[in-house]
C-alpha cells in the first residue's frame, strides 16, 4: 500500500483522488505534497513545492479528520442526481474450504484457503455490489451481491473482505484504489440499505453485520 491509500483525498482542498507512490502523496489540484516525517510522533509532513512556505508537520489523525470534514469517500461516489455509484479495478479471490490448524495434535482453529485471483471491475450502487468482467468481449453476467445479503465487512491488510450466504468469504484487492475508501463506502451503503429496509441502524460490521435492535 501507499500513503495515498490512507489519504485518498486532499486534506487541504478536498480534491479526490490523491496521486503518488510509496510514502509520498500529491494533490493534483492544489499541489500540496505530503510525505512521511523522518522523526516524530505519528506526524506527516506537508509542503507545497515551489513555494517559500516551510513544510509543516501535522498529525496523521488531523489529516484523517480533514478528509472526513470534506465528505470522506462519499463526495466522489455521489452523483449530481444524488445516486450512489462508484467503481474500481480489483482482483477478486473467493475462499475455498476451511482447513483445521493443528499443532501437536491439538486443534487450534480453522483457516481458509483462497483461490487464484481474477481481475474484475467492482461496481457499487445503493442496492448492490457487482463484479463485472474487465473485458467488453466477455458477455457473461456479472456476479451480484445485494447489499442486504452481505453478512460481514472488514478490511484485511490491503484488501476488503465481505462474507455472503452464497459465496462465503470474498476478498477484493484494489489495483489502484484505496481499500480504506472502499471500506468507508461499503459501510455507508450497507448502513443506508439496512435503514431503507427497516432493519435498523447498523452497529457493527464484523464478525457479522448487526443492527441496533439485534444487539443484546
Amino acid at each position: 500500500m501507499a500513503l495515498k491509500d490512507f489519504l485518498y483525498r486532499c486534506p487541504a482542498c478536498g480534491h479526490d483522488p490523491m496521486e503518488g507512490r510509496g510514502d509520498v502523496a500529491t494533490c493534483p489540484s492544489c499541489t500540496l505534497q505530503i510525505d512521511r516525517k523522518a522523526t516524530g510522533t505519528t506526524c506527516l509532513r506537508l509542503h507545497v513545492p515551489g513555494t517559500e512556505a516551510a513544510p509543516i508537520e501535522v498529525p496523521a489523525a488531523t489529516l484523517a479528520d480533514r478528509i472526513t470534514a470534506h465528505g470522506g469517500a462519499l463526495t466522489r461516489a455521489t452523483h449530481s442526481d444524488g445516486s450512489l455509484a462508484y467503481e474500481a479495478e480489483v482482483r477478486v479471490q473467493t475462499a475455498g474450504s476451511e482447513m483445521p490448524i493443528r499443532y501437536r495434535r491439538r486443534l487450534l482453529g480453522f483457516a481458509e484457503r483462497f483461490g487464484a485471483g481474477t481481475p474484475g471491475i467492482l461496481h457499487l450502487s445503493a442496492d448492490a455490489l457487482e463484479l463485472r468482467s474487465p473485458s467488453s468481449a466477455d458477455a457473461s453476467s456479472p456476479r451480484r451481491w445485494a447489499l442486504e445479503d452481505i453478512r460481514s465487512l472488514q478490511t484485511s491488510s490491503s484488501a476488503v473482505q465481505i462474507t455472503t450466504h452464497l459465496d462465503g468469504v470474498v476478498l477484493f484487492r484494489f489495483t489502484e484504489d484505496s481499500p480504506r475508501r472502499w471500506d468507508e463506502l461499503l459501510r455507508h451503503a450497507i448502513g443506508e440499505r439496512w435503514k431503507r429496509l427497516g432493519k435498523g441502524t447498523v452497529q457493527e460490521f464484523q464478525p457479522r453485520i448487526r443492527a441496533e435492535e439485534a444487539l443484546p
Binding site: 483525498r9 486534506p11 487541504a12 482542498c13 478536498g14 480534491h15 479526490d16 483522488p17 489540484s29 492544489c30 500540496l32 507545497v48 480533514r66 470534506h70 465528505g71 463526495t75 466522489r76 461516489a77 455509484a85 462508484y86 467503481e87
Partner: peptide, 11 residues
C-alpha cells in the same frame, strides 16, 4: 489550510 475549491475527479 490553503483556500481552494473542493474538486473531485469523476468516477
Amino acid at each position: 489550510w490553503r483556500a481552494q475549491p473542493i474538486a473531485t475527479g469523476a468516477n
